[in-house]
Nucleic acid binder design. Structure first.
Length: 492
RNA sequence: GCCCCCAUCGUCUAGCGGCCUAGGACAUCGCCCUCUCACGGCGAAGGCAGGGGUUCAAAUCCCCUUGGGGGUACCA
C-alpha cells in the first residue's frame, strides 16, 4: 500500500488570489480529494515587506468561495504546524545549522550592493552571473574582519558543480540540469529569514508532502531544491509542474489583462461553480466531448496524466459562456437570493423594501436569466425596472422613435393601458394584438417604439413581460415622455 | 547571454504510428424560432509553425530552425 497522498498549496500573501494561483490550488485540491489524501495550506510569508495579513484574509476567503477546503493550515491547525513560515523561523535556523556543521553551507559576507556590481560586470563580460564563491573558504581571521565591519552574513548553500541533477516530473518526464550552472544560492537571508528555495524543502519534507504540484515557473528552481533534499538526506517528493496561464497577448497573466483576482470575478457576478469548472479546464481535460463538470465529477476524473504541457491562455469569453450555462441552471429562487443584495448595493431599493420587491425581482430574474452572462450584468441591465430615469440610446431614439406614426401610437397605447383593469401580461398582449389588427401594422412596428420608450434601448426581454414588470405608472410616464421626444427632430 | 519547458483551428483541447479527407467546445458567420435580444436547434468557415530524417505508413518518433513561456535575486 502506498503512503497517503499529502499535497499543499503555498501562496505568498502579497496580494489577491490570482487565477493562476487558484488553478494551482484547485489541481492540488482535486488531486488530494481524488486520492482521499490531505490538502495542506501553508502561507509563505517570508517576504517581510510585501506580506500582509489582509492578503492572507483575502486568499483564504477566495479559497473558501471556490469551495476548496483545506485539511491543515491557517484557522485549522494540524499536526505539522505552524503553517505560517514566519512562525517556523527556528526550524529553518536549526536545519541550516546542520548544513553549516556538515560544511554543506557557509557564511557569506558579501553585501547585496557588491553582488549586484559583480553581477553586472560578469554580464558585461558575457559570463554567467553566478556567485563567485569568494566567501566559500574564508579563514577565521577574514571572518572576524567582516564581522568587525558590521556585516551580517547570509548562509549560502555549497552546491555541487559536477554532474547533473534530474527532475523526474510527473507531467514533463525527466528534465536534466547541469550542476555547473547552479550557483551557491542563499539559504538564510541576512535578516534571518529563509529564502523560498530553502524553506520549501524544509517545509515540504517536515509536512510530509508526497506530491509537489505547482506552476511551471518553479521547474527551473527544482534542481536547487533537489540538491538541498539530498544534502539533508530527505527523500524526494514527486514533482508535477503544471503549465502557466497566460493573457491573450501570450505574456504572463496580469492586471493589464483585466480581472485576474478571484475576488474580482466573484464581485463581477461570476459563480464559483463556473469559475472552478473553467479553471479546471485550463491545462486539464477529460476527453473529447465533456467539459461541463460538477465538483464531484472533477474529483472523480482528475488525473495528473491528463494535464497538458502547454501554457493556456485565459479566455474570458469562454468563462462568460460557462458562467451563463451555470446561471441558467440556477433556480429562480437561487438567482433571486444571489441578486437581491447586489440590487440593494446598486441603490435600486433599500434593505427594508427587500421583501416587498421580491416578487418583482423574481419576475425580472425569470426574464433576464437567459439573457445575461453574469449576476452583475443582470443587475446592471435591470436598472430601468427600478430607477425613475431611463437613459435613452440616441441611435435607438433616432431610428425607432422618430417616425410619423409613433407619437400617436404611444398616445393610443397609454390610453389603452390606463383603461386596463389589470396591467398584466395577458391584458397587455391583448392591447397590442387588437391594435395590430386595427392598424394592419406589423407587431414589431408597434412594439419596438414602446421598447425604446420604456427601456431606452432596442433590446430587452419580451415587451409584455417588461411592461408588466416596469409597472403601469412608470411605463406610461416614459411613453408620454418618448412621444414628445419623437416629435422633435434629431438635435445635437 | 546561459539554462529549462512548450508548439494541433483565433482560444481551450481530443489525438499517445495506420481508426485522421484531424474530433469537440468557446468565439466568429449564416439559417430556423421570433415583438428586439438572448436561450434553443441546424449549418459554415477555420488548424497539425517550417525544414530534414526514421518507417511500408507520421499530427503522432528523432534532429535542426523559428516562435512563445519560464528560470538565472538576501521575491515567492
Amino acid at each position: 500500500m502506498t503512503a497517503k497522498v499529502r499535497v499543499r498549496f503555498a501562496p505568498s500573501p502579497t496580494g489577491f488570489l490570482h487565477v493562476g494561483g487558484a488553478r494551482t490550488a484547485l489541481f492540488n485540491w482535486l488531486f488530494a480529494r481524488h486520492h482521499q489524501g490531505v490538502f495542506v495550506l501553508r502561507i509563505e510569508d517570508t517576504d517581510q515587506v510585501r506580506s500582509t495579513q489582509a492578503s492572507v484574509d483575502v486568499i483564504l476567503e477566495a479559497l473558501r468561495w471556490l469551495g476548496m477546503d483545506w485539511d491543515e493550515g491557517p484557522e485549522k491547525g494540524g499536526p505539522y504546524g505552524p503553517y505560517f513560515q514566519t512562525e517556523r523561523l527556528d526550524i529553518y535556523r536549526e536545519y541550516a545549522q546542520r548544513l553549516l556543521d556538515e560544511d554543506k553551507a557557509y557564511l557569506c559576507y558579501c553585501t547585496p550592493e557588491e553582488l549586484e556590481m559583480r553581477r553586472q560586470e560578469a554580464l558585461a563580460r558575457g559570463e554567467a552571473p553566478k556567485y563567485d564563491r569568494r566567501c566559500a573558504h574564508l579563514t577565521e581571521a577574514e571572518r572576524r574582519q567582516f564581522e568587525e565591519e558590521g556585516r551580517t552574513p547570509v548562509i549560502r548553500f555549497r552546491s555541487g558543480d559536477k554532474g547533473q541533477t534530474a527532475v523526474n516530473d510527473l507531467i514533463r518526464g525527466e528534465v536534466v540540469f547541469e550542476n555547473a550552472l547552479l550557483d551557491d544560492f542563499v539559504l538564510i537571508k541576512s535578516d534571518g529569514l529563509p529564502t523560498y528555495n530553502y524553506a520549501v524543502v524544509v517545509d515540504d519534507h517536515l509536512m510530509g508532502i508526497t506530491h509537489v504540484i505547482r506552476g511551471e515557473d518553479h521547474l527551473s528552481n527544482t534542481p536547487r531544491q533537489i540538491q538541498v533534499y539530498e544534502a539533508f538526506g530527505f527523500p524526494l517528493p514527486q514533482f508535477a509542474h503544471i503549465p502557466m496561464i497566460l493573457g491573450p497577448d501570450r505574456t504572463r497573466l496580469s492586471k493589464r489583462h483585466g480581472a485576474t483576482s478571484v475576488t474580482q470575478f466573484r464581485d463581477e457576478g461570476y459563480l464559483s461553480e463556473a469559475m472552478v469548472n473553467y479553471l479546471a479546464l485550463l491545462g486539464w481535460g477529460y476527453d473529447d466531448k465533456r467539459e461541463l463538470f460538477t465538483k464531484e465529477e472533477l474529483i472523480k476524473y482528475f488525473a495528473l496524466e491528463k494535464v497538458s504541457k502547454n501554457p493556456a491562455i485565459f479566455d474570458q469569453k469562454k468563462l462568460d459562456w460557462m458562467n451563463g450555462v451555470y446561471l441558467r441552471e440556477l433556480s429562480v429562487e437561487q438567482l433571486v437570493e444571489a441578486v437581491l443584495p447586489m440590487m440593494i448595493g446598486a441603490g435600486y431599493f433599500t434593505a427594508d423594501e427587500l421583501e416587498a420587491q421580491r416578487p418583482r425581482v423574481e419576475g425580472i430574474c425569470e426574464v433576464l436569466q437567459t439573457r445575461v452572462k453574469t449576476l452583475k450584468e443582470l443587475v446592471d441591465t435591470s436598472y430601468y425596472f427600478f430607477l425613475d430615469e431611463v437613459v435613452y440610446d440616441p441611435e435607438a431614439v433616432d431610428k425607432i422613435l422618430r417616425k410619423d406614426y409613433v407619437p400617436d401610437l404611444l398616445a393610443t397605447l397609454v390610453a389603452e393601458f390606463l383603461r386596463l383593469e389589470k396591467f398584466d401580461v395577458p391584458s397587455i398582449e391583448g392591447v397590442f394584438l387588437r391594435l395590430q389588427e386595427e392598424t394592419g401594422r406589423k407587431l414589431g412596428d408597434l412594439i419596438q417604439p414602446v421598447r425604446v420608450a420604456v427601456t431606452g434601448r432596442r433590446v430587452s426581454p419580451g415587451m409584455y413581460e417588461t411592461l408588466a414588470l416596469v409597472g403601469r405608472p412608470k411605463a406610461c410616464q416614459r411613453m408620454k415622455q418618448a412621444a414628445e421626444m419623437a416629435k422633435k427632430p434629431a438635435s445635437e
